[in-house]
């Protein structure tokens, strides 16, 4: 059940160039039910920037009631967010959406987690939970350039981790899809730019796969029809799914991306 709550900021750190790790404490953490859910953040108590910003939950701890997000400072909203310091309160709506189904991978099976840029964060909690369950977890993480790489060490604790940078300034040069070709796995979980998700969906249509989508949002809770996508079995018709409330995670092939 989602809630709207003023959560206290516990810490905020720039962990890579323009990449911030933000932890808050709040009762709504008790409502999180899967890795890959997100929150909708009001970055100001004024009316500009007007809309809330959707940010994934990258990890959480129900005992301490804390959740952590990792975001890239992009435009007006995330720039304001980056200025906030511990002790301040943040207006958060969440947890929202449906996350990754960890029950789809059994202990002993291999899960491949593929993340691109700011699609990497929600995979972290997923990785922790799969590893804890006894699954074999492999990570393939793509970044633009060396200065924006984050969480490599954290992911390494849970399993093999391959990093690729688009410009080749760190680790392998190229796209995550180049790395994935060499690996063996039972199930893919991915979050990142749409071209990456599309490529995965096309190349590994024989594999079990779950993709987390992004779309511009209004309400974030299913009321405004801003974030819809077509269902794959009815591409010309009126059937739809809402990324905010039916997703953001979908089984590959369920919706048109």
């Amino acid at each position: 059940m989602m809630q709207k709550e003023f959560c206290r900021i516990i810490s905020q750190t720039e962990i890579a160039e323009d990449i911030f790790e933000l932890s808050v404490k709040g009762e709504l953490v008790s409502q999180i039910n899967a890795p890959g859910q997100f929150v909708h953040i009001r970055v100001t108590d004024r009316w500009g920037p007007l809309l809330r910003r959707p940010i994934s939950i990258s990890s959480f701890n129900k005992a301490t009631k804390q959740l952590t997000m990792i975001y890239r400072k992009e435009g007006q909203g995330t720039a304001l967010l980056a200025k906030m310091v511990p002790g301040m309160e943040l207006d958060i709506l969440g947890p929202l959406g449906n996350g990754f189904p960890i029950e789809e991978v059994s202990s002993g099976e291999t899960a491949l987690l593929v993340g691109g840029g700011i699609g990497v964060p929600p995979l972290y909690e997923l990785s922790k939970q799969l590893a804890a369950k006894g699954c074999n977890v492999i990570h393939v993480l793509g970044f633009q350039t060396k200065s924006t790489v984050f969480y490599e060490q954290e992911f390494l604790k849970n399993g093999e981790t391959y990093v690729a940078t688009v410009d080749g300034t760190y680790a392998a040069k190229g796209f995550v899809t180049d790395v994935v070709d060499r690996l063996r796995f039972d199930c893919i979980f991915a979050c990142g730019p749409t071209p990456m998700l599309k490529a995965l969906e096309q190349h590994y249509s024989d594999k079990k796969m779950f993709l987390s989508l992004e779309e511009r949002m209004g309400c974030g809770i299913g009321a405004c029809f801003a974030c819809v996508c077509k269902k794959a079995d009815d591409p010309l018709g009126v059937s739809y799914k809402k990324v905010c409330s039916d997703g953001p995670v979908f089984r590959a092939g369920e919706v048109v991306i």
């Binding site: 009316w47 500009g48 920037p49 007007l50 809309l51 779309e215 511009r216 949002m217 209004g218 405004c224 029809f225 801003a226 974030c227 819809v228 996508c229 077509k230 018709g237 009126v238 739809y240």
Partner: peptide, 14 residues
């Protein structure tokens, strides 16, 4: 009705 393709919303000042 399905409506228009996305993106369907864009923020503006206020």
């Amino acid at each position: 009705r399905f409506g228009n393709p996305t993106p369907r919303v864009a923020e503006t000042d206020a």
